[in-house]
């Protein structure tokens, strides 16, 4: 599970205070809000890349507030994907298992399994420079999933993809969730993505965070407002 309990974070002059959300184990939470409302800041706080000034971060049932990013057991995909320029796709998939000292044969088996799940077997020896947006997103997803994290933290994973690729990625995210049982927190400004993927939706608006029932989200769609 992923839970933020009365979390306060700040980034420069920007502050979010006392916000809470909870995604149950195996659930798919979508965190929505306009650009600049603090969605990414909250996701970074969950990863441990940004300190929380108060409150608790709970990942996989463990209090992770004081843990280093490496010890939180979360797979993180940033908005710009941040692929490693000098590494092959295989290197990306091996990265986390090697950092976590997996046995060589386990790493090889995992790379094989993930490459097939994500449909990137032909790309394994390529470097990020020549990859399309959809391919790069699959690699970033594979890198995050490689060490079997309990939670997956996705920042705008479908933005900047063409319609066809976005459809493929939606299907892929569904199959990944089914295959791995990972708990997901997905940040987006798109209601369409929330409708298609989420089972919990949270809305950040004017410095507050509230859960919006999926049913109401549909009503909000019909009315053309969040």
């Amino acid at each position: 599970m992923i839970a933020l309990e009365s979390v306060s974070v700040s980034a420069g002059a920007f502050r979010l205070e006392g916000v809470s959300l909870s995604v149950p184990a195996g659930g798919y939470g979508v965190l929505m809000g306009k650009t600049g409302c603090g969605k990414t800041t909250l996701l970074e706080a969950a990863c441990g890349l940004r300190p929380v000034t108060s409150g608790r971060v709970v990942l996989g049932g463990r209090d992770a507030t004081a843990l280093a990013p490496a010890d939180r057991g979360g797979g993180y995909v940033p908005q710009d994907r941040a692929l490693f320029r000098t590494m092959t796709v295989r290197g990306h998939l091996e990265f986390s298992p090697v950092a976590r000292r997996w046995k060589k044969e386990d790493v090889a088996r995992r790379v094989d399994e993930l490459a097939r799940l994500l449909g990137i077997v032909p790309l394994l020896e390529r470097r990020p420079a020549g990859l399309s947006g959809g391919e790069a997103q699959r690699v970033a997803l594979g890198r995050a999933l490689a060490a079997r994290p309990g939670v997956l933290l996705l920042d705008e994973p479908l933005t900047a993809l063409d319609d066809e690729t976005r459809e493929e990625m939606v299907a892929l995210l569904r199959s990944v969730r089914k295959a791995t049982g990972v708990t997901v927190l997905h940040v987006t400004h798109s209601r369409e993505e929330a409708r298609r993927l989420a089972d919990r939706v949270f809305l950040v608006q004017s410095g507050t965070l509230r859960e919006v029932p999926l049913r109401d989200l549909e009503v909000a769609f019909a009315e053309g407002r969040p």
Binding site: A68, A82, S96
Partner: peptide
């Protein structure tokens, strides 16, 4: 960003520096 991602993937800051930033 790459270095931060490496840290979420199990690296300490020093490991992220050696494995990701220095080669780049």
């Amino acid at each position: 960003r790459s270095e931060q991602v490496a840290m979420t993937l199990g690296c300490t800051r020093a490991q992220a520096f050696w494995r990701v930033t220095l080669p780049e």
